[in-house]
Amino acid sequence: MPLKFRHNFKKMRVLFFAQLKDATGCEWTDIPPAANAGQLWQVLVEKFPRLAEHKNNVRLARNWEYADAKTTFAETDEVALIPPVSGG
């Protein structure tokens, strides 16, 4: 019996904060799911060239926690770009 599986083609949501809102002109964007930080940056810089100059100062967060080099991303994750913080 042939089987077909239903799929939800979800997109990955990426949030921007502080000066990155100015650089991108938006608070968030939806992109095709990226598996790791390298892919994610590639897609984002293509979409928002002005992000390139921030890349070295920005940390990635996945589901409200800082990501590290090994972090992988899934399509339902909430991803955020965190520029240098200045609270307090």
Partner: peptide, 14 residues
């Protein structure tokens, strides 16, 4: 805590 807050907590003086 104050030292770490200024490094890690995602809050910005906009």
């Amino acid at each position: 805590f104050m030292d770490r807050l200024k490094q890690d907590v995602p809050i910005w003086k906009r």
